[in-house]
């Protein structure tokens, strides 16, 4: 600054304090401009990543990301069946014990159907907790093992069967059948409650689709309601295959 020649009649810029002076002191627009650009970029990234910003896409990304653990069958299967169920619902258990084995043998094992399980936990707190437990098991690739154990313990609704303490016992059952299942990790996951959001989102999404009872199924998008016998599914699967171009 001291290099200013005294012969110069006027300084190029006012040197008394003022916004222009302050800007110059900070190195002028190149510096301040880059600071502003940096702040804008950071602000945009925060805005795009704010909690709740992805509430709609979350449903789909959460489903897509997590769904792997709740799939049964080959992705190339021409027919997809989405099952909406509640671990506390007696008819869901009835379907699992009476129809699911035949479906697995005839259609899933033969690569014709891929089954996807979705939580529609609407029968109270224990339904949600059981679904969270299944999802925590899914994190370790043991959804179906937990699914079977959960249904095997089903009793009267909200009678204390699916309390966190019991769910951890069921996890031990899963561990006894499945090598490498980490019950400590499972307990941390369950107690952390991080799966509640996904369970609630799935219920909300199912309700939006018009699911009002369990079990409900979508066979390539076409609904089947209730614990229907295998014949009903045979017909629906045949129709779904015929409808495919």
């Amino acid at each position: 600054m001291s290099q200013r020649r005294p012969t110069k009649p006027k300084p190029a810029r006012p040197l008394k304090p003022g916004w222009r002076y302050t800007i110059d002191q900070w190195g002028g627009l190149p510096v301040l401009g880059s600071v502003v650009v940096a702040l804008l970029v950071v602000g945009t990234l925060i805005f795009l990543n704010r909690p709740g910003a992805k509430s709609d896409p979350v449903v789909s990304t959460a489903l897509e990301g997590r769904v792997v653990g709740r799939l049964h069958g080959e992705a190339s299967a021409p027919v997809t069946i989405v099952e909406y169920a509640d671990f506390q619902c007696p008819f869901c258990k009835k379907w699992v014990t009476e129809t699911a084995p035949a479906l697995a043998k005839e259609f899933i094992a033969t690569g014709q159907v891929q089954l996807e399980y979705r939580y529609f936990a609407f029968l109270g707190e224990e339904s949600k907790k059981a679904a969270e437990a299944a999802e925590c098991a899914a994190d370790q690739g043991r959804f179906w093992e937990m699914h079977d154990v959960l249904y095997s313990h089903q009793a009267a609704e909200n009678s204390g069967v699916y309390t966190p303490a019991n769910l951890k016992k069921y996890a031990a059952e899963v561990a006894s059948k499945a090598n490498g299942f980490d019950t400590g990790k499972f307990a941390t996951c369950l107690d952390g409650g991080s799966k509640r959001a996904l369970v609630d989102q799935m219920a909300a999404q199912a309700a939006q689709l018009g699911v009002s009872s369990t079990p409900s199924f979508l066979v390539n998008g076409k609904p089947i309601v209730g614990a229907q016998p295998i014949e009903v599914f045979r017909t629906a699967i045949a129709a779904a295959k015929a409808a495919k171009p």
Partner: peptide, 12 residues
Amino acid sequence: AARRALAAARSA
């Protein structure tokens, strides 16, 4: 330092 250098350049 950069800020000072730029500021000096501007008021020179």
